[in-house]
Design a protein around this nucleic acid. Structure first.
Length: 423
DNA sequence: TCTGGGGTCCTAGGACCC
DNA sequence: TCTGGGGTCCTAGGACCC
């Protein structure tokens, strides 16, 4: 049986989450900002209509915010994650196989569904259920490959006459839509590649679909070759129900205000490596490589610039926060330079092993800290319980560098004190 | 004053080996 | 004097995604 994929994508997800708990903002333009209140990462349809662009730094649109009364929110990630869970659980009830692709998107396997119900009807059913149960609007694109399902979803969003559901299983409809789609709107074609394609005279998705896969591979890579095949209805990507184990874990942040002292940098990196270690234990992995980096702001060209990073091997794979903090501090001593206004720092963990599978060298002694497993377990349990938060002294108490979140909405769904009140 | 954070995959090139 | 060719592993950097 030939495969059928659906892509379900929430409309303006972060902005929709904020609006859901603020019925007074129904018709008000809303934008949500990135961490540190830096730039716009989500816009309600009213904000889009005002011409607010994705990714624009918020200081550049202050005038419009004032003029049009745009409501501004800091990212409230725990709220969005909770709403996302509800959407995904509902999808899992409706479709046999679901791949959660990102916080606001999921691929469904609809192979065989059309023998029972028309694909468009099924799509409508999904859309209405999510909207009724969760209150979040979604669009659905249906097609024989993931790339075409993405495109169908795009069309469902763009053309309101579709009712938010587009079935692209028929080749004639595929070609019609491909001809209307600029090449840069294809999943997997970014800025660089679309420029090069246009130089070659390839402007629409249909132009790309009609280019030979072999020549695309020669001029670009296997990745784009796969895209060409998928545009022609040949499924090259499968549904991945179980997320593969991570290959690296990154924790980095820009500072709320510039860091100039070594002590504050130590605290910040400690904080990041501690979060990274928590994620690592959640993945049930141990890491053998640790990298750190620090840098000044590349956008401030009137002050001296410095950026540096360093990678080191741990003596053996570990998930113990103490080992990772220790090495982080050693690395920082080697790259730290006085006299700069640091804007950002981060750590990267990589080279992962399943717990207990690492082969020791012939002459290596395995001296694990005897209490490591238990201690880390207790630490994680307490920090997840919501009862309190334990932290390492190195992370610091005053923490002047933490990120800016001046427009944060309440934790409506995850904190008893902040539930929505109905009066 | 003010430009996010967290990922993946692929390729090219260097080091090294036989 | 001659300076091959194939393979592997590693790393840095590019490109993409949400």
């Amino acid at each position: 049986m030939s495969p059928v994929f659906a892509l379900v994508d929430c409309n303006n997800f972060y902005a929709s989450c904020e609006k859901l708990f603020r019925p007074d903002l129904v018709d008000t333009p809303v934008v949500v900002l990135s961490n540190n209140d830096g730039c716009v990462v989500a816009r309600s349809k009213e904000a889009k209509a005002l011409g607010i662009k994705m990714g624009v730094p918020v200081f550049k649109i202050q005038a419009q915010i004032k003029q049009y009364g745009i409501q501004v929110f800091s990212s409230n990630y725990s709220l969005y994650a909770d709403m996302s869970d509800r959407v995904m659980r509902t999808l899992e009830e409706m479709a046999p196989r679901v791949e959660i692709y990102s916080i606001d998107e999921a691929f469904l396997d609809l192979t065989g569904v059309q023998s029972a119900v028309s694909l468009v009807d099924f799509g409508q059913q999904v859309k209405h259920t999510i909207e009724r149960w969760i209150g979040i609007a979604v669009c659905v694109g249906i097609a024989p490959t993931k790339t075409l399902a993405k495109l169908a979803n795009h069309a469902a969003k763009k053309y309101t006459a579709t009712g938010g559901v587009v079935d692209l299983t028929h080749p004639s409809r595929q070609r019609k839509l491909l001809a209307l789609t600029p090449v840069e709107d294809i999943w997997g074609v970014g800025n660089r590649i679309s420029k090069r394609l246009k130089d070659m005279g390839i402007h629409t998705a249909l132009d790309l679909a009609d280019t030979s896969a072999k020549s695309i591979r020669k001029h670009f890579s296997v990745v784009l070759e796969r895209t060409v095949r998928e545009l022609n209805g040949e499924a090259c990507m499968e549904l991945e129900q179980i997320p593969p184990t991570k290959k690296q874990i990154i924790c980095s942040r820009s500072f709320g205000s510039r860091v100039t002292s070594r002590m504050h940098m130590r605290q910040a990196l400690c904080e990041h490596v501690t979060r990274a270690a928590e994620k690592l234990r959640k993945e049930r992995q141990q890491a053998k490589l640790l990298s750190i980096f620090i840098r000044t702001s590349p956008f401030q060209n009137n002050v001296p610039q410095y950026r540096n990073g360093l990678t080191a091997k741990l003596p053996r794979p570990t998930d113990d926060t103490r080992d990772l903090i220790q090495l982080t501090m050693v690395l920082l001593e080697q790259i730290w330079r006085d006299g700069y206004d640091y804007a950002k720092a981060g750590v990267v963990l990589s080279d992962f092993y399943d717990i207990g599978t690492y082969q020791l060298g012939l002459f290596e002694n395995h001296i694990e800290r005897s209490n490591s497993r238990q201690l880390m377990h207790i630490l994680d349990t307490i920090n997840h319980s919501g009862q309190g938060r334990l932290f390492f002294a190195r992370q610091g108490v005053t923490r002047g560098w933490v990120m800016k979140r001046d427009h944060l909405s309440p934790a409506y769904t995850t904190h008893w004190q902040q539930l929505v009140k109905v009066s």
